[in-house]
Design a protein around this nucleic acid. Structure first.
Lengths: 188, 188
DNA sequence: CCGTTGGAGTGATATTCATCACATCATAAT
DNA sequence: ATTATGATGTGATGAATATCACTCCAACGG
């Protein structure tokens, strides 16, 4: 377990260095959790007390439309963070499901603890700032891809940029992530 | 000018409080700048030394595709921040233009100064973290709107959620922001 | 005041993509 | 092993949207 926690320290220190004392304090706020395939981390309509750093495994976060169809917002794998961030940050109920595609392991932290750590420890504020900035930039690029590129071009970008993900995920989920029907995707 | 700077202080302190001394130091890193309609804050291919807080005015950030068509990533108005954040944060050249739709006034700050302030002043790290978190959440919702909703539904949401913006911006720019042709939008 | 430019609407047609229906194959559960 | 379930491919059809062509009109600069 110490070993897995140390992976999280390495992840955080890619963006902001911590002293050993700070790390001892920070790490005490994370909880290790294991979930099996098909278990939900977050459910629509429920409160979202935690965000999750993925030690190992694969998850999808998705909304369900009025026809009951799933639309995937994000895949998460090793070293990613996942939650329903609107519900988590603003303490409202979830509009997304987060579901394990594989058996997975996480470290979770509550919003109150995260805000406390960011207020107390400058490095944690900066870690969180930089992590969110990277996510923000990635989302801007995803929006642009919807404005500029065809579904087929988005699929080809995904094949080049996330080959590891593509191999772990059924094509119908990739279709849902790209915003195209699985039939159309299978004709690319 | 002190008065305009004070608006920026109020904006920042909505998310994180500063002492007077901190504010004196922070504010010394911002530069007031005025641009006329049709002037560019950021140009494709150029370095992006600054991000901009909009005191007054209206801008658009957009990419240009291989057919020369514009695709609007963001509108910015009073109290918004704008830049090409990928280029700004990662010090690479811009892939977006940022252009003034109206005569506009800004406070700008360089990436090195911003990073310095965030490293030195915890409140600035937390301000920037929270601002980026809100932007991240808004972008997630925009991605979901492209996955779930038709162009007409996206347009109706925009009419409800940003009535002020709609009145200041020509419909062909709204069409470009929504990812639909101006002809199709005019038939909604 | 006139001429140019840009915003906006609309008809006709082409293209992209979704949907429905069905078939095949692999995998998982009993 | 047998059955059920899920993943994938493909043809036929329809809906949503893009594109092209044209018009009208308001704003703006000379």
């Amino acid at each position: 377990m110490e070993e897995k926690l140390n992976l999280l320290r390495i992840h955080i220190e890619k963006m902001a260095k911590l002293t050993d004392d700070e790390w001892a304090y920070v790490s005490s706020h994370f909880k290790y959790r294991a979930f099996k395939k098909h278990q939900y981390l977050v459910q629509i309509g429920q409160p979202v007390p935690s965000e999750f750093w993925i030690v190992k495994g694969l998850v999808k976060s998705f909304a369900v439309d009025s026809d009951g169809k799933e639309h995937i917002l994000q895949f998460g794998m090793e070293d990613y963070w996942v939650s329903d961030y609107n519900a988590y940050q603003n303490k409202v109920s979830a509009t997304l499901h987060v579901d394990c595609i594989e058996n997975s392991e996480f470290f979770s932290i509550s919003i109150d603890d995260k805000e406390k750590l960011c207020r107390e420890i400058k490095a944690m504020a900066n870690f969180s700032r930089l992590k969110t900035t990277h996510g923000f930039i990635a989302l801007q690029q995803r929006v642009m891809s919807h404005l500029i590129s065809s579904a087929e071009e988005r699929y080809n970008s995904l094949l080049s940029n996330q080959p590891g993900l593509v191999q772990r995920v059924p094509k119908k989920l990739l279709a849902s992530y790209l915003g195209v029907s699985r039939e159309t995707l299978s004709r690319f």
